[in-house]
Design a binder for these strands. Structure first.
Lengths: 155, 155
DNA sequence: AAATTGGTTCACTTTTTTATGAACAAACAA
DNA sequence: TTGTTTGTTCATAAAAAAGTGAACCAATTT
């Protein structure tokens, strides 16, 4: 464990942890995300994660396996070593963003089913639902141009 | 309790409940949201909610109060009755959407702090972080025009 | 072969979240 | 006044999530 974490880094890890926790991520997963961001080398071995975060091996094992399935984390090995060096799959951020933005629009399915199932005792409410639904569909169509616009603007 | 819920509506309520649950909302709150969407009149009294969802009065009381603080639900009364008729604040959806979309960009604060705190042992990783951060800032600037674009397109 | 390293698995404990139900209160009705 | 309706509050129970530690396994070292 080469790097010693500053207080600022420790606090930042916790803040990142809470942030993700509030969005439905398991607490330890959020902290591992934070740790791997904050470390200068942006990687850590299994044992380092255990030591930095003061948690059990089993908790880390479960969290890391889950995060690998979710495609958030990968590991590499170094010649002659058996240790795994875990790091965030940062290259994949565009995909990740796309998924996140699209997730908002997932509600359309439910909204549409609600609209279908409602008897028209309250048309103005149904119209509201329809409008939200239309907006979400509009947003979905605009996602690609959001990425294009960004690339154009910076490139 | 005038309306009798069809199986389809019951299932839809559960699906909507799970959907919101997975995004960090309390289970009962998600189900109340679903119920108030699915009911033809788009409203229900306290007791109806208790009966439709088979939960205790205290659970409903807590959930409704919370949802009112969060500005998701309101109630009206009818002349000569003490009962409250609860309904979703559907008029407010644009604000709600804005908040949801902006929430994604909240990560910029943390990302920026991570970038600040990192020693440059791994510049390519830091560059990735910077790029994500820039993208999120770009998205934030584009939110208003998203709403404008939608209004223009439909109006 | 014995010991060590690097991690996994599983039964169990701890903690947190969610829901219950009894008691209570305020408003009205008989 | 007494009873009823419409909720609220609080202590607690039930359920779910998260984490622990011992036992284990496979690969490597001694």
């Amino acid at each position: 464990m080469s790097e010693i974490l500053s207080e600022r880094k420790k606090e930042l890890i916790e803040k990142i942890g809470v942030f993700h926790e509030q969005r439905g991520m398991q607490p330890l997963m959020g902290r591992i995300l934070g740790l791997l961001m904050v470390l200068d080398e942006a990687e850590a071995t299994f044992e380092e994660i255990v030591d930095y975060l003061n948690v059990s091996k089993s908790a880390v094992s479960n969290a890391l396996n889950f995060m690998q399935i979710q495609n958030k984390v990968k590991y590499k090995t170094k010649p002659g070593e058996r240790k795994r060096y875990f790091y965030l799959k940062a290259d994949d951020w565009e995909n990740d963003m796309q998924t996140q933005i699209e997730d908002i629009t997932q509600a359309t399915h439910f909204l549409q089913e609600v609209i279908d199932v409602r008897e028209q005792a309250n048309p103005s409410f149904t119209n509201h639902l329809q409008e939200v639904c239309s907006f979400l569909e509009y947003v979905k169509t605009k996602i690609p141009s959001l990425f294009e616009g960004f690339r154009k603007q910076k490139g």
